[in-house]
Amino acid sequence: MTGRERYIPYLFLLPALALIIIFNLFPTIATLIESLHGNSLVRGGRVFVGLGNFNRVLNDPVFWKSMQVTGLFSILVNPIQVALALGLALLANSKVRGITVFRSIYLLPVAVSINVTTVVWGLMLNSEGGLINGILNLVGIERQPFLISPSHALWSIIILATWKGVPLWTLFFLAGLQGIPQTVLEAARIDGAGRWQSFRFVTLPLLRGVLLFVLVADTVANFLLFAPVLLLTRGGPQLSTNLVMYETYRRGFVYGDLGVSSAMLSLMLLLVFAVIGVQFTLLRRRA
């Protein structure tokens, strides 16, 4: 390419890249910088406070409690969702008549936003007369205090997040399953592999890349879960659903402490990168 032509690719790139730099890349760096600043009571405006915000965050029992809740939530929700999504993908991959209708039905929770999911499930999990208690009542289980008891509330969030999340992750597994050549599975069958064996030794190893991606993406997505907590529990009862994303919102936008909130967000950013990093190293080592 000569002369004027050399600039053409940059012109094509300019609008999108400029916007991404301004509204995505810069805020990422600025989050880290903002976490080193605080509100000045004397002069007003922002002043540099060094690691002061981190110091406050790391000595804050509410933050640690929210990390604990988030950890428990992650350990429960991610394996549940990934296992169910894999199972559902195997089921939806069956070659039976009418399967496309079922697949369309399974797509519905993907289309529904998390807010809608939250409102509908919030009412279904109503502890007085909700539909779920109604169904439990049919099989002789007494009313459960789903959203109002500290021992139940986190599970309620897990249930609604799972209804919305599993169909999405199923799409990835289904795409992965459909990418496995039929000949490989036939070869396994001819070699005398049973259903479980061909799943364990053929399908699963071939799905490893997808599995890893889903595990990472699901972990990150659930780490960011926010709307159900805001709309249903406000972190309660007794901080039992005070997920860290909600805690950063509360500190930053309800109490106006942007420095502490940024420090929390910086820690979350580092954690997200650590999760991505660890899981990719795991994949590379096994490969």
Binding site: F23, N24, L265, V272
Partner: peptide, 13 residues
Amino acid sequence: VPVDLTAIPRFIL
């Protein structure tokens, strides 16, 4: 980078 994690500087901007 999840956009929700960098909302504060974007908000200030």
